Simulated assay, not measured.
Amino acid sequence: MNAGVVDDVFPPAVRARLEEAADIQPPHVVTEFTSPVARAALAECEVLLTGWGCPRIDVATLDLTPRLRAVIHSAGTVKTFLTPAAYERGITVSSAASANAVPVAEFTLAAIILGAKRAFSLSHLFRTRRTHRTAADLDRHPWLGTRGITVGVVGASRIGRRVLQLLRTLDTEVLLYDPYVGEAEAQLLGATRTDLDTLVATSDVVTLHAPETPETRHLLDARRLGMMRPGALLVNTARGPLVDTEALTEHLVSGRLDAVLDVTQPEPLPHDHPLWELPNVFITPHMAGAQGNEVGRLGALAVDELARYARGVPLNHPVRLEDLERIA
C-alpha cells in the first residue's frame, strides 16, 4: 500500500493488534513488487495485507508468492489490483468494504435529510439575500422535509443495506431496486421491492448504491431522469457513470430536480460546468467514504480478519470470485 496511509489505517492500538496476530515481514511496507527486497518478502509471506495504492497482483506477482494463502485488503474494492487468477490458486480474499460502508451510509442519510429539507438551496438564498426566509421561499417547493416521503434505494450493496437500516429512523416509505434481491429479502431489509422505472417515477428521493459495471452505466439515463417527479432529490454517493451527466444537467439547470453529488462524470466536472453554480445542487469532492479518523475503522476490520485467519476460522468479510462482476 502507499506508505503515507499506513499510520492512518493502522493507528497505534490497531498496529499493536496486528503485531500480535502476525509476524510482519521486513521491509514491512511494500509499495512495489519488483525490487529484490520486495521479492524476498513476497517469497516468504503467507498473507498480503493490502491497502490503497497496492500494485497489481497479477500472475507474475503470484508466481513470486509460493506460500501466499490470503489477501486481506484494508480498503474497499479489490477489483482494481487483484487478478482472478488468485482464486484459481486457492487464495482467500477479504475486504474492508463493509467498514467503508459506514461513513458512506451516514453521509447519505445526512444528504437525504438536508436535501429533503431543501437546506442547500435555502442556504444559498439566505447567503445571497441575507434576509430571513419567507413563506414564499418554502412554498415554491413541491414538498419539504422527510415526513411521509418515498425514498428509492437503488442497489442493496453493503452501503445500500446500511442506508436501508438508517432509513428506519425516518418516517418514510422505502422502495428498493436490486435485481439480486427478492421480495422476501427486501421486506426483511425494510423496503418494498420494485422495478427501477417504478422506483424513479414514484420516489421523492432516489439514492444510488449500485456498483459501476457495463450494465449500470447510465442506469439513470435521459428517459429515467425524465420520469422523476418534479422537485425530486437525487443523491449519488456511488459512482458518477451511473448517471447521464448531460441529461441530469438539463433537469438541474431548469430547477426541476435537486441533487447531492459526491461523485460525478467526469470527476471533477470542468471548471465552467453549470452545476458548480446551481443553488439546488450540492457537490462534494468524493469524500463520503472513510476519511480522517474514520480510516482506522478499515484497518481494525482488516486486522480482525487477519486474526481470524490466524486462528483458522472463516473470515467474516470474504470476497468471492462469483461476486466480483456484480460488486463495486
Rank of each mutant, 00 (worst) to 15 (best):
A238N: 11
R239S: 10
R239Q: 08
R239M: 11
P241V: 11
P241L: 13
D244W: 00
D244Q: 05
T245V: 05
T245A: 11
A247D: 06
L248R: 00
L248F: 05
T249R: 01
T249P: 01
E250N: 04
H251N: 01
H251S: 07
L252T: 02
L252I: 08
V253G: 05
V253N: 00
S254D: 13
G255F: 01
G255D: 03
R256P: 02
A259G: 01
A259P: 03
A259S: 01
L261I: 07
L261R: 01
L261V: 04
D262P: 06
V263I: 10
T264Y: 09
Q265T: 15
P266V: 06
P266A: 07
E267T: 11
E267P: 08
E267L: 08
L269P: 00
H271C: 15
H273S: 07
H273R: 08
P274N: 09
L275R: 02
L275Q: 00
L275V: 06
W276G: 12
W276V: 12
E277A: 15
L278R: 00
L278M: 07
L278T: 03
P279D: 08
N280V: 00
N280I: 06
F282W: 07
F282D: 01
F282V: 08
F282Y: 13
I283W: 07
T284C: 14
T284H: 13
P285Y: 12
P285F: 15
H286G: 12
M287R: 12
A288V: 06
A288S: 09
A290S: 11
G292H: 06
N293L: 14
E294K: 10
